[in-house]
């Protein structure tokens, strides 16, 4: 047998954390499918929750005709973008919000003695395809809204739009992670963080012009959720920003995403360092 003290060199093209993520996520997915009835029921629950949420959006637009200058079709694009981004972030990272539980139960210690990033382990724990029950309907609503709103498409525009969507997912996941990291410092921070994460999601499901300038500026420059649905919609519909911010901001999504991810990584590292020097 090889000397186990010498580090093994396994050739690989994909970064290790990604490999580990895929391996863990796949194992959990397989487990989820071992209880098909439970999975079906939970997926149905998630789908119906989207139906309920979207139903409320439709009712508002139906009654209002136009909401803050946005038609129902445009409202569907906003909702679809927000729900798809949050759904995807939830699929990939949602479980990190249970950090506090993991600390209290000692599971975080167990994760720390494995040669795999504890963030990857935590994010994949209980990874479940039921969350597609949010993403797929959301993408359907987005597609329908875009078809109805009928903006002019070019190949370049489609590409930029796709990049903005991915940026939105990264921003959501980052906000989520920063919120979860508060639990390293304050045990009961989960629900307070939820008011930002879930509250943010609720906020971005409508055109931000609804909320007035103060809030739009807050979610543009502090918790940058404006880049999840609002700025991409202004871009794809080619509309001027009704809240008076520069139109060039709509292209800032990718840069904001990189920045948000960096802040989230820093929050995670700081939190973990704090944990490893206090054990609590």
């Amino acid at each position: 047998m090889a000397d186990p003290i010498a580090p093994r060199r396994v050739p690989h093209l994909v970064p290790r954390p990604v490999q580990d993520y895929a391996r863990l996520a796949w194992t959990w997915t397989r487990t989820a499918f071992q209880y098909p009835a439970g999975l079906a029921l939970m997926t149905t629950g998630v789908v119906l929750s989207v139906v309920a949420e979207f139903g409320a959006v439709l009712v508002v637009f139906w009654r209002a005709g136009e909401l803050a200058g946005f038609s129902m079709a445009e409202g569907m694009v906003v909702y679809g973008l927000a729900a798809a981004a949050f759904g995807t972030a939830d699929l990939l990272m949602g479980n990190v919000e249970r950090l506090g539980e993991r600390i209290r139960s000692g599971e975080l210690d167990t994760m720390l003695v494995r040669p795999v990033s504890p963030l990857v382990q935590m994010a994949t724990d209980d990874f479940s395809p039921r969350r597609l029950g949010k993403i797929l309907p959301a993408l359907g609503i987005l597609a329908a809204g875009l078809w109805w709103a009928a903006p002019e498409w070019t190949a370049g525009k489609a590409l930029v739009f796709a990049v903005l969507m991915v940026s939105g997912v990264v921003i959501c996941a980052s906000v989520w992670l920063v919120g979860a990291c508060l639990q390293f410092f304050v045990a009961d921070a989960r629900e307070a963080a939820n008011s930002v994460t879930y509250g943010g999601q609720a906020l971005t499901e409508y055109p931000l012009a609804v909320y007035g300038q103060g809030i739009v500026r807050a979610v543009t420059f502090t918790v940058p959720l404006a880049f999840v649905s609002w700025q991409p919609v202004l871009y794809v519909l080619d509309r001027p920003d009704p809240t008076g911010l520069p139109d060039a901001l709509r292209f800032a999504g990718p840069a904001v995403a990189v920045l948000a991810a960096a802040v989230a990584a820093l929050a995670w590292r700081t939190g973990l360092r704090h944990y490893r020097s206090t054990g609590s």
Partner: peptide, 28 residues
């Protein structure tokens, strides 16, 4: 602490919902 956080969350959601409805009633 949990109760305080609950007040915060409920107020945030209430405010978001209220602003959407104010925009709606602005039209009708």
């Amino acid at each position: 602490a949990a109760t305080l956080a609950g007040v915060l969350t409920n107020s945030v959601f209430g405010a978001i919902n209220a602003m959407v409805l104010l925009a709606l009633f602005g039209a009708r």
